[in-house]
Simulated scan of single mutants.
Amino acid sequence: MDKRVASTVADKFQAFLDNLAVEHTEFIMETFRTITRQLNQTYYGNRSELRYARFIGSYGRGTAIKGVANINILYEMPQRVQKRLEVWQQKAPRVLIKEVRELIEEAFPMVKLSDQCHIIIPSLHNLQFEIIPAFPGLKKSYIYPDLNNMTGWSTFNPLREIEVIEDSNFRYTGKTKHLARMMRAWRAARNVPISGMLLDTLVVSFMDEWENNDTAFGYYGIMGRDFLEYLAGRRKNQAIYYAQGSNRELPSTEDFGAYANDDFKLASQAVEHELNENYYEANRLWLQVYGPLFPVML
């Protein structure tokens, strides 16, 4: 690729990723600290604002983008509470949810339970925080209240999912998270029926296979194009995928590959226009693929 073309593409995609940055991060951290301190006072007898709590979900994986609505927080409960709850038997999950909700309510009176009995704090900036109290399990897994499960409990392993993203991102010098964020913009712009976790899982797999995974920002147009082609090649009748790291099931009920195939064609045209230095047409097509957060650089 011509150096001048690569520089122009690099500038666009660097600006694009800047535009995708999550807003209100100081407010998010302040809320996290308040929640953590409130729970730690009761469960651990200290006022730490960081220990025993972790961001999980897309924000915890570092793949969320501007406009993210849900901030998920895992809170690690002490084992003695698990012992205490044993006397409640099948009612134990509801007792735990009620107890944690009441503690959080002291700091956030607006706290509520969702239809699935998740602890939710509606907040400013169109954000809502979900707090997941959980007990440590085997191999970095956690056991959390799940009233949709007959036992009242389910197991998940969000920390391994975060580790897989972090390892891939380190191996490929930041491109894993960059691509995951770019594809969230694509998903939002084109209303693509694919979950964020499935996107992240497929990005990790793609980066291991992509022949240009050692390139820099000048290849980000090609990277997005090639990933769309990769998505388009997924079997449309595959109903279940498995998350990298945790191996949890990720249902896929609609054909996201058809959306990817259409936009692979647009991205291919955009790349050709970039190579021919027809930047106006390239920008027009990138805007179609990635939506209004893609910068118009004429």
Rank of each mutant, 00 (worst) to 15 (best):
E163N: 09
S154E: 11
D146T: 00
G233W: 08
G257Y: 12
V9W: 07
S58Q: 06
M182K: 09
S268E: 15
E30D: 12
M197N: 10
E211V: 07
A180D: 08
R80L: 04
I222Q: 13
S58G: 04
K236H: 14
T151N: 11
R101I: 07
F294A: 01
L103G: 00
Y59C: 07
S252G: 02
I131M: 06
Q238Y: 09
S48F: 07
M1A: 15
K98Y: 14
L275K: 15
R4Y: 12
N46Q: 10
V204I: 11
G291E: 01
W286F: 03
V203F: 00
R61H: 11
Q89I: 06
G137I: 07
C117R: 14
T8D: 11
W210H: 03
F16V: 01
A282S: 13
A53C: 12
E166N: 14
Y75E: 04
Q82Y: 15
D146Q: 08
S114M: 09
V204L: 00
L74V: 01
L198C: 01
Q116F: 11
T31Y: 07
S7K: 14
T253V: 08
K98S: 13
L50R: 06
S246C: 06
L293E: 09
G245T: 04
I143D: 05
V192S: 09
A21F: 03
N237K: 09
T8P: 13
Y144D: 06
N157F: 10
Q269R: 15
P109R: 04
T201F: 06
E254F: 13
M150H: 05
L250G: 01
I120K: 09
I28F: 09
T253R: 15
Y290W: 14
T31C: 11
Y242D: 08
Q128L: 05
V81F: 08
R51D: 14
I240V: 12
L74K: 06
E161C: 05
